[in-house]
């Protein structure tokens, strides 16, 4: 009760930069979502489904925890 919302952050922007500056549109096309969804994920405004999270990780060839980091909600 009263616990804040847990936060999922990610390193997608850095991973895109390392992947020869992959564009948001290119990543969106490979993952099968819209560019707006990639923008929302990058800015922590949307936590993707497991399926999309795995597809993003596979696109960059890294494990899931190499892309996403779960930050538990602080206790009140």
């Amino acid at each position: 009760m009263g616990k804040g919302k847990p936060r999922i952050s990610n390193h997608i922007r850095e991973l895109r930069a390392r992947a020869d500056g992959m564009t948001q549109q290119a990543l969106a096309d490979r993952v099968g979502v819209t560019r707006q969804t990639i923008i929302a994920i990058e800015s922590d405004r949307y936590s993707p489904s497991l399926e999309v999270a795995f597809r993003i990780a596979e696109t960059f060839g890294v494990p899931l925890e190499g892309v996403f980091r779960h930050e538990p909600a602080p206790d009140p």
Binding site: G32, V33, T34, Q36, T37, A40, Y46, P48, S49, V52
Partner: peptide, 11 residues
């Protein structure tokens, strides 16, 4: 192109 794209999971 944007108009033809279907809805994804976030939509």
């Amino acid at each position: 192109k944007d108009a033809r794209a279907g809805a994804d999971e976030r939509d």
